[in-house]
């Protein structure tokens, strides 16, 4: 049975709105059409003038682009532009001098002060009206604070009435408005029609056509003196929008534009900080260690560095792909890329080594019987098989091998991070089936959607970093590491130093820090990861003290000491007034709210409204700081040999990048949770000292080496 499609009444609403917009055009902007016709005429004559002048053709017409509009822009509103701006350039020059004379007169300044005071007076009137309401609200709330109760989560009668009102009036209206908005957004025909009509009324099309009309006229005449006339005409056309929209609406528009600009500035600053961070990371060697006492944000810093490093490795692969692409500019790289993708899907290619083997097999096959199909359809007879960079001659198969390895590094979608704690990465690979592109932006991701495309760092199997003895001898991961960013937090606890490893023997049966050849791996790590002379590897570690990691490994590193972690700052300008207001409001609300919580447990209307209002402001404020907040770390860089020479530097931690579910600051907390669960007692069950002075029995309960030694002497 076919179901009859129900007619949506919202179409009627949209049609009525359309009729209203058309009526507005007829009654308020009756001359918009004639201006459009004029502009088309100006354009036609200017084009004809341009061609006649260019090709020396005789003509008997005059271009009309410099003539003023014959009708007023908005007849009903008068068209004040004509009185403000002079019609001619000479008139403008004369007014320019008069303007500065007037600007410098005290009468004009006093007049301005009076105008400002008038505005302030209007503002005061608003405050005077608002003040009794606020006062009433305060008295009303204070009344509640006088009465104590324990009515847990019970709504007062006014609150019940308010909730009923919102459920039966506000919510349906809001739902309808949102539904209407979605309805219009989905139907492009309506909103595009309205947009075009308003653009037409505000002479937008006329302005564009007039611009091209003058462009052609100017190319034919080079009449510089006519430019002012065009500015004047532009002002007349724009006057339609300036005159029609009221001042308060312009204030709103101004605030929206200012908000947009300040956010744009904030994003630019955050990206600038990110580039500075990348410069800092690039200046470090392949292995480096970040040190700092507890709470100095060292794990946060290495996570941030690892995230930037991952992006930089991909960027480097991308850059080198282009370099190799240009060596054989007519090579059909897409055919090679598609074959690589297929081989990766079939797990024929899963590492740089397998890429090399795959390419070399193809090269051998081609060498046996050369033809285009075996060389990815490359027309080698026409374009050649070698490339000379004036240092050496490279064959096409060598470049293919390099390109394939770089493409493998670039295109793998899992994270390039291999860490001993979890790190979330959210770079997105956009692929239309051609060359894929990475979106590496850290600052514009939608926090509600990140889980849908997030990946996490690979689990670091330390056996894969050991060239000697391994903890699991038949470990399938042991030879897997080739390239990527290795991140090791608390490296000293894993590797130890010479004092801690005194009792470990190199010839022990099981793996230990002395016989696993981890340090040898560290010294040779770039060999497995070098493609096209660039090492696609970094080892980033952290520890509280540099000495906690043995000198043999530490000497390879640079040590980044975090000396100071600065306060949270905001990259977005023009937020100081909002911050002042927020601090003032939030401080007062917190005091009032906890006084209320102390006295009462029920829900009342004034507190419900106040809390909702403050929560909204708090969410906005927190959202701004989370998006545009950053903190500056003061760091000192020292050689791993600890020669005592420090280079001062700065590193920026941007909230949106590093605190957006990136990692857990208590990454080993599950161990301590498990340990605590084994205990049957908690802090409340521990014995307390009876007085200010501990007794001998109480001291014995400490199980302290020191106390035990003292007690032995008794």
């Amino acid at each position: 049975m076919s179901e009859k499609k129900k007619f949506d009444y919202r179409h009627i609403v949209c049609l009525l709105v359309t009729l209203g917009v058309v009526a507005c055009g007829v009654f308020v902007f009756p001359n918009a059409f004639s201006r459009l016709v004029e502009s088309v005429k100006d354009f036609g004559l200017s084009v004809a003038y341009f061609f006649c002048e260019t090709f020396g053709i005789e003509y008997g017409f005059t271009p009309t682009v410099n003539e003023l509009p014959t009708l007023q822009i908005i007849p009903s509103l008068g068209g004040g532009a004509t009185t403000t701006l002079p019609e001619t350039w000479d008139g403008f020059k004369s007014n320019w001098g008069t303007y500065w004379q007037l600007w410098a007169t005290s009468d004009n300044f006093i007049g301005y002060l009076l105008y400002v005071s008038d505005l302030l007076f209007t503002l005061c009137k608003v405050i005077i009206i608002a003040l009794p309401i606020i006062l009433f609200f305060y008295v009303y709330l204070s009344r509640y604070l006088k009465n104590e109760n324990n009515d847990y989560d019970k709504d007062s009668r006014p609150l019940k009435a308010f909730k009923w009102f919102t459920a039966h009036v506000y919510t349906p209206v809001k739902t309808w408005v949102i539904g209407m908005y979605c309805f219009i957004r989905e139907r492009k025909g309506y909103w595009v029609t309205w947009l075009c009509l308003w653009l037409f009324y505000f002479n937008a099309f006329t302005i564009v056509i007039e611009f091209f009309a003058f462009y052609f006229y100017f190319m034919g005449s080079f009449d510089i003196s006519s430019i002012y006339r065009q500015v004047y005409k532009l002002c007349l056309d724009l006057w339609a929008i300036f005159d029609f929209i009221p001042v308060w609406a312009w204030v709103v528009v101004g605030l929206i534009v200012m908000d947009h600009i300040r956010k744009k500035i904030a994003y630019a600053r955050l990206r600038h900080f990110e580039l500075r961070n990348r410069g800092f990371i690039n200046a470090r060697p392949i292995v480096y260690m970040v040190c700092g006492t507890m709470g100095k944000k060292k794990t946060t810093a290495i996570t941030d560095m690892a995230l930037s490093q991952e992006v930089m490795l991909r960027d480097k692969a991308f850059e080198k792909l282009l370099e190799n692409d240009l060596k054989f500019s007519c090579f059909p790289w897409i055919i090679l890329e598609n074959e690589l993708k297929r081989a990766m899907e079939h797990h024929e290619i899963y590492s740089l080594a397998t890429v090399k083997v795959w390419v070399r097999k193809k090269a051998i096959r081609w060498n046996k019987a050369p033809n285009r199909e075996k060389l990815f359809d490359y027309d080698y007879e026409r374009y050649g098989l070698t490339y000379d960079n004036k240092l050496k001659v490279t064959t096409v198969w060598e470049v293919i091998e390099t390109y394939a390895q770089l493409y493998f590094i670039y295109v793998i979608q899992s994270s390039l991070l291999i860490a001993n704690y979890s790190v979330r990465v959210d770079n997105v690979l956009a692929d239309l089936g051609n060359f894929p592109m990475w979106n590496n932006d850290f600052f514009k991701s939608d926090s509600r959607l990140v889980d849908s495309y997030s990946r996490h760092a690979h689990i670091l199997d330390f056996d894969s970093l050991r060239l000697g003895r391994k903890i699991v001898e038949e470990n399938r991961n042991s030879d897997s590491f080739e390239f990527g960013v290795v991140v090791i937090t608390e490296v000293g606890k894993e590797r130890g130093n010479s004092i801690e490893l005194q009792d470990k023997k190199k010839n022990a049966d099981c793996a230990n820090q002395k016989n696993d050849l981890f340090n040898s791996w560290l010294k040779m790590v770039r060999h497995s990861a070098t493609v096209d002379n660039f090492p696609f590897v970094r080892v980033i570690t952290d520890e509280q003290r540099p000495e906690s990691w043995g000198a043999d490994a530490r000497d390879l590193c640079e040590i980044v000491h975090i000396r100071n972690s600065g306060d949270m700052s905001l990259a977005m300008p023009f937020f100081s007034f909002a911050e002042l207001l927020y601090d003032w409001l939030f401080g007062r609300f917190t005091r009032l709210y906890y006084k209320y919580r102390f006295v009462r447990s029920d829900n009342t209307l004034p507190m419900y409204l106040l809390k909702a209002f403050v929560a909204k402001i708090n969410h906005y404020y927190t959202g701004i700081y989370n998006r545009f907040g950053f903190c500056t770390l003061s760091v000192q860089i020292e050689s791993g040999t600890q020669d005592g020479q420090y280079d001062e530097n700065k590193y920026f931690l941007m909230s949106k990048k590093i605190y957006s579910k990136r990692f857990s600051t208590d990454c080993f907390s599950d161990f301590f949770t498990e340990k605590a669960l084994r205990s049957s007692i908690g802090i409340n069950d521990l014995l307390e000292y009876a007085t200010e002075k501990a007794t001998i029995d109480e001291l014995q309960l400490q199980n302290s080496y020191f106390i035990n030694d003292l007690l032995k002497g008794l």
């Binding site: 008069t98 303007y99 301005y112 100081s576």
Partner: peptide
């Protein structure tokens, strides 16, 4: 310190708006 900085920034914005306003006011008076 932070509050003083915020007050100064707010005053700076107000001053900028005041000065721009004077230029516009003079143009309208002309």
């Amino acid at each position: 310190m932070k509050t003083i900085k915020r007050i100064l920034c707010t005053l700076l914005v107000v001053a900028i708006v005041f000065v721009i306003g004077y230029f516009i006011y003079t143009a309208v008076q002309l």
